[in-house]
């Protein structure tokens, strides 16, 4: 096994660890961290596999995709954090509760 493949495997492991955190942890800040780790994992896999090319240079197309992906990730993170703060202000909890029933 060569080193790009090790990093690609690290990528999918990060994706899964993030997914695990997203499901198991309840605090919204933790869920946002989890989504970021999942994203990093995908980016890692995308780029690492681009190193399989026969020439000297790695494939630049995944690099461009990841750079745009990082910017999307930071904007989504900023939005999620602000939304979380607003939600905490309104409901007093940074955890999404499954309300028993809607009061009608």
């Amino acid at each position: 096994m060569n080193s790009p493949m090790i990093y690609a495997l690290l990528g999918i492991t990060l994706f899964s660890v993030g997914l695990y955190g997203l499901i198991v942890r309840e605090h919204l800040l933790r869920k946002i961290l989890a989504l970021n780790i999942m994203g990093s994992g995908i980016f890692l896999m995308l780029v690492a596999l681009g190193k399989r090319s026969a020439g000297e240079l790695p494939d630049p197309v995944p690099h461009a995709m990841v750079i745009t992906g990082i910017v999307v990730a930071v904007s989504a993170t900023a939005l999620a954090l602000t939304l979380m703060l607003k939600l905490v202000e309104a409901s007093g909890s940074a955890v999404l509760h499954d309300a028993p029933k809607d009061r009608s």
Partner: peptide, 16 residues
């Protein structure tokens, strides 16, 4: 806000 947060989490996970 609660609905939007749920939607955000679901849509980001779906995109990933």
């Amino acid at each position: 806000l609660d609905g939007a947060m749920r939607y955000l989490m679901a849509t980001l996970l779906g995109s990933l």
